[in-house]
Amino acid sequence: MEVNDYNACVHQWADGLFRFARKCTGHEEDARDVVQGSFEILWQKRRDVQPGKAKAFLFQVAYHQAIDVYRKKGRITYKEDPEQPENVRPGNPDLKKVLERALGLLDEQARALVLLKDYEGYNYEEIGRITNLNEAQVKVYLHRARKVLKGYLVSVENII
């Protein structure tokens, strides 16, 4: 991978990587750190990474960094909880907000699997390579997360 390929990756995948990292970590600054760290590692490993596999490499690095940040985050208390903005309250009929709250119910691994599936459209095999899981595990964990999300939507619907 040359400099031009690397810069093309920045322009093409930085936004998606940031969105993925933000949903995984739940914090914007942590997500920015994850993105910067992912691209820094890509630059260091640019001679070993082919341009066609740069996206998977970036999300793999971001996934592991986000997991680490999320686990570290459990020991940190933020003064302002970004996941609890004032305009988002329980019972809000906005489906998007409801799904964000439902996503917060998942563990970090299931959340990452759902995001990789819905945001980036990876299949089970590709998600397995990124998360170091086999295809069957990905399928099981993902379906388990789908049931949680669907159950949350049903519960919110019943409340409304």
């Binding site: 920045v10 322009h11 936004d15 940031f18 969105r19 933000r22 998007k96 819905d118």
Partner: peptide, 17 residues
């Protein structure tokens, strides 16, 4: 229950990368 990405959410500061 599928999560739809918000394309308005972008990474600011790509030039640094």
């Amino acid at each position: 229950a599928r999560i739809v990405p918000d394309n308005r959410e972008i990474y600011i500061g790509k030039e640094e990368l």
